[in-house]
Design a protein around this nucleic acid. Structure first.
Length: 727
DNA sequence: GGGGCGATTCTTTTT
DNA sequence: GAATCGCCCC
């Protein structure tokens, strides 16, 4: 392994051994490089053997990248390395050990939707006044308790107000219901291993033996359960290395505690501390702007980012009237970058604070024909049709999962409504059996006729596939199931237009099962379900394709792009109103802005709109974000944008408005032919009459519609191709 | 008892 | 703009 491409301090961090290691790694300072080289260093020098190393990340994407990069340094070791997210590693532990807690290893993993459904069922069983609390807020509370490691008993003790008591009561019942359903929620994935470690020291010992060196990425984002997990494992040998940047802590609302990194030495004892302060990613102007913003935070470890690259361009600041114009301005600036700097679509990321903001941007991109990719928002695996399918599969694997049962018992519609389901619930609790079991005896509940038949049919399907589980592989089973349950037929016969898309998604899902089977030939259905429930949109995101990326600032963490647009820089949106109430929240917003800025390698565009419509009602923002004023003025360059919308009206008769035909952006210079119709921002639509020169120097002779003749350099003219001038 | 359709109510960020 | 809720009709 060559360490030549490491800086001095990077090298020291890589080689430090025998003490806990804390690495403060500023944005773009080569954090992943240090981590991967460190793993390679441990292996190559026989300090720790590969199978005894555990590396933990927050996202699957980060884990995947780390695996690939370690693999390049020590090729043959990839398969025995333990690199994964907190959630996936904990899930793996639970599959092996959860029987100690009274669950079976076929447990379901409940996502946010499932949690809400379960909370709802629990509330309904509890004699709580209607609408006193919503499942939504209760779910939130429960998650809050869990992130702080507050057990139901403790929550009950601490509760003073009546509402708080109600929350705590529901929490307690919810947790019992999870056990009954043989299900865990996302938070449990992290918490239950701790419980096992606490109750079974021999198991903890086993894992300490197994993982003798622990590396944690993005340590500033760990919450209490994650911290405890790491602490339990590292205690004893203290062979631990954490990397993080307190300035990039943006998950406080999820329980992340910045003190975990600031108090590392206190928790793990005498350690080596390294500060990676040299930034290899961004140009100096961007870094200075970012630094002067984050310096306004009080709660941070003092540090600098030292630019390695040149000054670069100033940050562009663009004001627009509303969100639609903002989207046009983004497209406009992006097209200019493509033409002048010869950039690819994949060089750009458009960032925003809330997912809802993607809509207007998406519209603008679609109109201008620029290929784009949206990360986040509604996820594939959260779509109704996919959740339904997963519901069937979960129920087949884990027949105790009543949330899935409720979800699919009447899908496709077979005439089983709430009343019938209620009867089954009552019957099951009276007979003290599982809910699935009572379905086969409808007459005992006084259910006859159509309903009775439907229950039997449903029961037989679940039973049959449950028995087929060991005999069929996941792919075969799912295919047979969608046919037999009538899912495919239901969508195929539906006349609703959205159902055709749903059918396509179901097919897509089948493909993903096949892919899984190809990857893990001996993988079972429950392993597939686990993988699926821990996948996120970012993991699907493919940076190979040449598309512009649209995503939230949160999703952008850990990524880099040559050009970054940060949109919606208005007080109330970014920072959000709700963040203005406390210093901590405002500082987190500021860090989020810092994260956004430091994603950029070469150019940043900052956008704000004077008006912005919110859902339905016309709520308006108006003030420029305070963060804009926290940057030195001499790093900013105001770029004026006048809406092209009003000028896009071409052709037709005077006084009459007609639309331009669908236009497409010119990407390559030699993209024009004689006879093409083009659109110019000022001169309007014209016809190409002559061509001269090549590549960057290409010129076009154009006759515009009112007879105006112009010879233009393509590079500067900002021309758009138009299919044909419509009347 | 079930299904369909209009009214109402939310939206921060995610494993 | 979507997702849930509640009402009303079959």
């Amino acid at each position: 392994m060559s360490k030549r491409n490491l800086s001095k301090v990077q090298k020291l961090a890589v080689e430090s051994f025998g003490k806990p290691v804390l690495i403060f790694a500023g944005a773009g300072s080569g954090k992943t490089r240090v981590l991967t080289y460190k793993i390679a260093h441990l292996i190559k020098n026989n300090l720790v053997s590969a199978e005894h190393i555990l590396a933990v990340t927050f996202t699957n994407k980060a884990a995947k990248e780390m695996k690939e990069r370690v693999n390049k340094l020590v090729p043959e070791k990839e398969s025995i390395l333990n690199i994964g997210t907190f959630h996936s590693i904990c899930a793996r532990i639970l599959r092996k050990e959860i029987h100690h807690l009274g669950y079976s290893s076929d447990f379901s993993i409940f996502d946010v939707q499932d949690q809400k459904s379960l909370v709802k069922v629990v509330i309904e069983s509890m004699d709580i006044p209607k609408n006193y609390v919503t499942p939504q807020e209760v779910r939130h509370k429960i998650s809050y308790f869990k992130n702080k490691l507050i057990h139901p008993d403790e929550a009950k003790k601490k509760a003073h107000l009546v509402v708080e008591k109600t929350y705590a009561d529901i929490y307690e019942k919810y947790q019992k219901a999870l056990v009954k359903n043989n299900a865990v929620d996302f938070d449990d994935l992290l918490i239950l291993p701790l419980t096992i470690f606490e109750n079974h020291p021999n198991i903890l010992e086993k894992y300490r033996e197994k993982w003798q060196y622990i590396l944690v990425d993005e340590y500033q984002d760990t919450n209490k359960p994650q911290f405890m997990f790491v602490k339990y494992l590292a205690e004893g040998h203290h062979q631990i290395c954490v990397v993080g940047d307190d300035d990039q802590s943006i998950y406080g609302w999820r329980g992340a505690d910045i003190r975990n990194i600031l108090d590392f030495e206190k928790n793990f004892g005498n350690c080596d501390v390294f500060k990676l302060e040299k930034n290899y990613r961004s140009s100096a102007h961007i870094l200075e702007a970012a630094s002067s913003v984050v310096k306004n935070n009080k709660n941070r470890a003092p540090k600098e980012l030292i630019p390695h690259n040149g000054a670069g361009e100033k940050l562009g600041l663009i004001e627009t009237n509303d969100e639609m114009e903002e989207a046009d301005a983004v497209v406009n600036a992006l097209e200019k970058e493509i033409k002048l700097q010869k950039r690819n679509f994949s060089d750009f990321a458009i960032l925003y604070r809330t997912n809802a903001q993607s809509r207007s941007l998406e519209d603008a991109f679609r109109r201008s024909g620029i290929p784009y990719n949206i990360v986040g928002g509604f996820r594939f695996y959260e779509r109704k049709e996919i959740k339904d399918l997963i519901g069937y599969l979960s129920l087949i694997v884990n027949p105790k999962d009543t949330i899935s049962l409720r979800r699919v018992i009447n899908f496709p519609p077979r005439g089983i409504g709430m009343k019938t389901v209620d009867k089954c619930v009552i019957q099951a609790s009276m007979k003290k059996t599982e809910m699935v079991e009572v379905l086969s005896l409808p007459e005992e509940m006084g259910i006859r006729g159509k309903q009775a038949g439907s229950l039997m049919t449903f029961y037989n399907i679940i039973k049959k596939y449950n028995e087929l589980l060991p005999k069929l592989n996941a792919g075969e089973l799912v295919r047979a199931l969608v046919e037999e349950a009538g899912i495919v037929r239901y969508y195929r016969e539906s006349s609703a237009p959205e159902d055709q898309e749903r059918l396509a998604n179901v097919m897509e899902f089948l493909k993903s099962v096949d892919e899984f089977m190809a990857r893990t030939p001996d993988g079972g259905l429950s392993q597939f379900l686990e993988e699926v429930s821990l996948l996120t949109d970012l993991d699907q995101w493919n940076d190979e394709t040449n598309r512009v990326t649209l995503m939230t600032l949160h999703s952008a963490k850990g990524l880099e792009f040559p050009v970054i647009f940060i949109t919606g820089l208005e007080d109330g949106l970014f920072p959000l109103y709700s963040a203005l109430e406390s210093v901590e929240k405002l500082e987190e917003e500021r860090r989020l802005f810092y994260v956004g800025l430091t994603r950029a390698m070469e150019k940043v565009y900052l956008m704000y709109a004077n008006h912005r419509r919110r859902i339905g009602s016309d709520e308006l923002y108006g003030m420029v974000s305070r963060f804009v004023y926290e940057m030195p003025e001499d790093k900013l360059e105001k770029i004026s944008f006048t809406s092209a919308l009003t000028r896009k009206v071409v052709g037709g008769r005077p006084g009459q408005f007609t639309k331009t035909a669908v236009s497409r952006t010119v990407v390559v210079f030699d993209d024009f032919r004689v006879g093409d119709y083009v659109e110019h921002a000022i001169f309007g639509v014209g016809k190409v009459m002559a061509l001269s020169g090549q590549g960057e120097n290409q010129r076009v002779g154009i006759v515009f519609k009112d007879g105006l003749k112009k010879k233009l350099v393509v590079k500067f003219a900002n021309l758009k191709k138009v299919e044909s001038p419509e009347d």
